[in-house]
Design a protein around this nucleic acid. Structure first.
Lengths: 368, 368
DNA sequence: GTATTATATATGTACGTACGAATTTAGGGG
DNA sequence: CCCCTAAATTCGTACGTACATATATAATAC
């Protein structure tokens, strides 16, 4: 520390005086000759110190007149000091995403960070463009909800090159299993297990599932479902494990209809999310099947869909939503400030019991 | 031109060679000593030229090793070309805002623009901070949904200083009447008039309204309501013009309850938006009053609330939502590209008739 | 008092030397 | 062939000088 170069010492000294307003905005600082005497160094050394300060925007030089404290450096400092976090999600306006984004925005604005937003509509090509755009904008950190997290993603090399750079990155909701990236998510395996166990506790032994195939959340919830069945030594029928992907979502109602018409049904369903659960219950009702009297349904995410059906409020696994966004933002801010690696954060699921699930015993009693 | 300083000539020469890939990315350029010989100048002069190029990001120096062509300057160039639009709204996750933001994002991404997002939670202090932040970030355009547009806004001077700058600005949903800023919005006066006229057409003569006092939309919808009554030569009772502001929203249910208990009621209500309509209908039902059999309700915005009530789907004025966002984005992009002044865009309202309104004649018949 | 001019002052360009510090390269020993 | 060391290379710091150019100031002429 003591053997810092002279010009660095002088630079720091001048910088301090500027920031302390010893040399106030717009005023002239001592000439090179004067500073030379003051610090007892050569003119070259003084020039070197001043040159760096000019470069950093603290000073402005004017030949023949003198060197002046810039009134620009303050504003530039603010602009430069302001950090921006890029957020890439699959959807913006749908379902639980507004809440997640709100959580992120809330936390970022607390730390005076800016938020740059982009959505992929669950399309990998859009994800690529969003990533490129964010990188070009030199964001200070990235929060990404992965697109088609259960399929081979062609943008993995982008993520790899990002993880080499100092730009912190955190994944939301799910991660790419091929990469070892930090993430903030609900424990989806546990969630699927909890949902299924709730049905098992109610006496159900024939349990179907409708889940998503192209994202990791769907895969994990299925995993939890299978685990719960295995632990309870129950079997499952392949016909009642129904999987769909983003593109096939619109065809799902007719697929459900076909399934419902194909013979014996289970007494309960686990649904990937509330949207699907509402879809299923509507199809059930159309066929004269009641929920929960005939078939119980447990879903995920506890979104506004949970209470939207006139006939029945959904039993659903709570999704942290805002909290998830807040946690992701908090982690990324911490990573930006401290340059420390990010640790993943996993939320524990929680079951909200409403009206769409019912003990099977009751039904048997009625039938007897 | 001929008497340019030597170091400037050398700098330009080197810069040219870098851009022509004579010195390609990452490779070492000749040492100071070599360049000294090549240009027949002192080492100091070479260092001066190189120093400026290092500062501009073209070169990177490494003591003991050499001076190298930076691979960073290219990306910095690209980043500067990308345009960013700042979006400031009151809320992010609530109500129709996700749809609006989605529209904006969709249109901006089509033009390869970035979106910087901030919300004010309808607080003017937050609005100020958001504006400052956006200005510091040097956004290329701004889309603002005004905070408390019907109250004197303390940030008007910010907007004034903005309108002097070349940064295009467009207001969303409403504008500040004190300023003459371009905006994209629904014709709220017409909307309020249309809603009220629908009730008049159904035979209602006693019509109340619940509207918001601190934003322009509420004021305009009230204006339309009064206009419709005036045109139909109907009177209104002050007790049934109920106004509330953002802060008092949570107290609204109890205020409605008090109103409902205070004697004779109108046969119909116009509501500021679907959220309020749902609130009102719940309170009505609690008092054993049916909608639409006893009291008709027409609301605004046609949001998901319109179809959320188990008892009745709402008759509501359509809000353009996505279209509004798309139009705002399109206007701002046009303004950024062509540097032309923005013209306001006003959407015509449209009535969606559902179950919450009923002709008064029918009711009379039943009663007879 | 004002306009012009000379002088002083400030930064800009450009040369030179010397030695320090980090890195690479070449040479020598095992 | 590998490891260590010494030398060479390259940039970093720091001193010096000289003169150019732009600006401010003081002196001068009107």
């Amino acid at each position: 520390m003591l053997n810092e170069p002279k010009y660095i010492i002088i630079k720091k000294n001048l910088q301090l005086k500027i920031e302390n307003q010893d040399y106030s905005l717009g005023t002239k600082i001592p000439s090179e000759a004067e500073l030379r005497q003051e610090y007892d160094v050569s003119r070259h050394t003084i020039r070197q110190a001043i040159s760096e300060l000019v470069n950093d925007g603290y000073l402005v030089k004017q030949q023949g007149s003198g060197t002046f404290v810039s009134d620009y450096y303050k504003t530039r400092q603010i602009g430069n000091g302001k950090k921006t976090i890029g957020v890439i999600t699959t959807y913006l306006s749908d379902y639980i995403f507004p809440s997640i984004i709100r959580g992120i925005e809330e936390e970022l604005s607390k730390h005076d960070y800016s938020l740059m937003l982009s959505s992929t509509r669950n399309n990998v090509e859009n994800e690529k463009r969003s990533l490129e755009s964010m990188m070009a904008q030199n964001v200070d950190g990235l929060i990404v909800e992965p697109t088609k997290s259960n399929l081979m993603n062609p943008n993995l090399n982008y993520y790899l090159s990002l993880s080499e750079k100092p730009t912190p990155l955190i994944m939301l909701n799910a991660s790419y299993e091929e990469l070892d990236l930090p993430f903030v998510a609900l424990d989806d395996v546990k969630a699927g297990k909890m949902a299924t166990e709730h049905l098992i506790d109610l006496g159900h032994t024939d349990i179907g599932i409708i889940t998503k195939s192209d994202d990791l959340q769907g895969k994990n919830r299925l995993k939890g479902y299978l685990k719960a069945l295995y632990d309870a030594k129950l079997t499952f029928s392949n016909e009642f494990i129904m999987r769909y992907d983003t593109e096939a979502k619109n065809d799902l109602p007719s697929l459900i209809r076909i399934m419902l018409e194909s013979g014996q049904l289970p007494t309960a369903f686990v649904c990937y999310n509330d949207e699907i659960a509402v879809m299923l219950i509507k199809e059930l009702n159309d066929k004269g099947i009641s929920c929960p009297d005939d078939i119980s349904v447990v879903s995920h995410d506890n979104s506004f869909y949970s209470t939207t059906l006139p006939s029945v409020k959904l039993t659903s696994i709570e999704h942290p939503k805002e909290k998830l966004g807040i946690q992701a933002a908090r982690s990324i801010v911490q990573a930006v400030e401290n340059r420390e690696p990010i640790t993943s954060y996993i939320f524990d699921p929680e079951l909200i019991i409403r009206e769409s699930t019912k003990a099977i015993a009751e039904k048997d009693e009625i039938e007897i």
